[in-house]
Design a protein around this nucleic acid. Structure first.
Lengths: 222, 222
DNA sequence: TTTGATTTTTAAGCATGCTTAAATATTATA
DNA sequence: TATAATATTTAAGCATGCTTAAAAATCAAA
């Protein structure tokens, strides 16, 4: 198994690669991991030699099959720990991320499988993020629509809030917006790309930054 | 907070110092931590500079007040994690030690206090080891008598089985010897220092190695 | 109490993973 | 398309925490 640093690299490459499906650039990775570009370059060579990423100088990196397998393993541990702390220990969502960030590197397969079992083999965490199974398989995911692509007057169901600062997380909690909340897009303000949505008959203005984190699906009305 | 290695040093110094109340020698520490004497010497200097141990060359080390505070903190984390995995996740005693050995270095005060609360602020783990409180205080401990100091024909209650290989742990489990079991010393065989005890009306022979791990208290018969 | 064995320390070296500064490649712009 | 700006890589250096080998101190036994 790779070191903690290597696990973090692989996880970050995975999540950055999900956002846009291209090779991940050195500087993007450096920003995400909050370390220097130089350190990324060095590590890229090492991970390439280990067969965990593909890497061409100046062209960014992508996970190999084995690299992805490990990234999903870390993601599994992270999300299961988060869910466990929330469900069992009654921590708040914004309290668990940093803890999980540490525990994910120090949990055996044996232990995480026990936690998985205890939780009843959940497929999604409380923010809609999919949890890889023991075998590294992601659950079937409905097609996610970015909230900023939605049409005015239409109703949607919130399916996913991607990893966000804990401030945003607790804000959304306060206004009652959770996974599976139903919302209606009331207005889209193009001058600042904010969106006004109706939730439980109350209007809320969501800034561009917030909107970018939220993904929904259409609700079939019949 | 110190590094993982430093936490391990402090914990080991604490437990070795409990066994005999003298300064802990370089080679004893090296054996316990399974690293070279040279590494111990180096680290001793560093921990001394940090004010966590007292250290005179060639004379071994002892914890300062602050060093002991940290050692107890790690011990608290270790024992609470073990108990948690056993009670909540249904792991066996011999499965939890290695996991706890890792988790103890990556658990915030906040999280371990939540676990403590979940468990109802336990004072002892399943082998009778005391769990330091949030404030670093050990619970009141009855005076422990080593099993090999016991008298034939007398009845005792098992109070503590000190850290042992998982084989021994599962053996004791199988014969039904747990914390608070009542036993009677039937015979002491001086040629191999083994002891025969009666437990639930069945005699069991315990080798010297086993006997050394078990501590009891007298049962008042009236 | 002196010599020989044992323990401890010092010294040199290595791997990991970071840093900053300089060199080099890529890209964007005029 | 040449040049300037940006991105990336290389190089040198540092901290941590280990190793082995050699030197030095302590302990034990004759």
């Amino acid at each position: 198994m790779p070191t903690i640093s290597k696990e973090d690299y692989l996880k970050s490459i995975y999540t950055l690669n999900l956002q846009d499906d291209k090779a991940v650039s050195t500087s993007n990775l450096a920003a995400k991991l909050e370390i220097s570009n130089a350190a990324i370059s060095e590590m890229s060579k090492k991970l390439y030699d280990l067969g965990l990423i593909s890497y061409e100088k100046y062209k960014g990196v992508e996970l190999t099959k084995e690299g992805k397998r490990i990234a999903l393993k870390i993601l599994r541990r992270h999300r299961l720990w988060e869910l466990f702390m929330i469900k069992v220990l009654n921590l708040n969502w914004d309290e668990v991320h940093d803890e999980a960030e540490k525990l994910e590197h120090h949990t055996s397969d044996f232990l995480i499988d026990k936690i998985d079992e205890y939780l009843g083999f959940p497929e999604f965490d409380p923010h809609g993020a999919p949890i890889p199974s023991k075998d590294g398989v992601l659950p079937e995911m409905p097609k996610l629509i970015p909230l900023n692509n939605c049409e005015i007057g239409r109703k949607y169901q919130v399916l996913r809030v991607v990893d966000s600062p804990s401030e945003l997380i607790s804000y959304l909690g306060r206004i009652g917006m959770n996974i599976h909340s139903n919302i209606e897009v009331v207005e889209k303000l193009s001058f600042d790309n904010s969106i006004i949505v109706m939730l439980d008959n109350v209007n809320h203005s969501l800034s561009e930054k917030v909107v970018d984190k939220i993904f929904v699906k259409e609700i079939e009305e019949d």
